[in-house]
Amino acid sequence: MTCLPEITPGQKKLGLVIDLDTCVGCQACATNCKEWNSSGHSGPLPDLKPYSAGAEGVWFNRVHSYEAGEGADGRTVHFPRSCLHCETPDCVTVCPTGASYKRIEDGIVLVDHDICIGCGLCAWACPYGAREMDEDEGVMKKCTLCIDRIYNETIPEAQRQPACVLTCPTNARHFGDLGDPESDVSKLVAARGGQDLMPELGYKPVNKYLPPRKRSSAAATPQEAVPTAMDIKNPLLRWMDKVLTR
């Protein structure tokens, strides 16, 4: 089971596309994910010492912020991080129990909490820090791509999307089939030059990150030629004879 499914061309690859150009780091995707999943497929998502020093918990989505570059070219970038539902992820193959699996039909990487032994090896094998140990229950948990929403027939169709996508106020998160080159997300990735994280590791992440756009350059140049207050005696005279009507 922890052998990876054969990827055939055109195979469905559900995933997220995250737009680093509009993410403002509001943490909505992180808390909404926590909220949805606490009572969802993987719930609960325990919090340890919640009201004391060292409070921490299980989150499937965490939002960092970075500074890239220096001086005038520098930027601040907010960066949400969750499971990338990689095509060839070692987090699945290392699992000794078969608890960790990648679904053939949509590529979602899941953990079966009923057989996971909590060895933690998959977390070591994930370069992206996307796996979260429920230390209370002793099992590994992770982003499910909201598997209990996206196919949920009790939810209106427009809402059958991951919680983090629906809640994002800046529309920085998109969900869809990245295996289909004609899907909206694939087109978006193509148009905006979507990036893989750590491609050098060879995990082939499905999720893509849209880079912050180039800053638009100055739209106009200052008019130096216009007479300045210093040049002419009374610049106000310019307006004296303007004929204005209502």
Binding site: E56, R62, H64, E70, F79, P127, E132, L197
Partner: peptide, 25 residues
């Protein structure tokens, strides 16, 4: 830089972490 895909801008430095205390990872 490669972990964040932001290397094209320049050197990448963490500004704020997603949580102020520790976690399992």
């Amino acid at each position: 830089e490669s972990a964040t895909s932001l290397g094209f801008i320049g050197k990448v430095r963490p500004l704020d972490p997603p949580h102020t205390e520790s976690n399992y990872l």
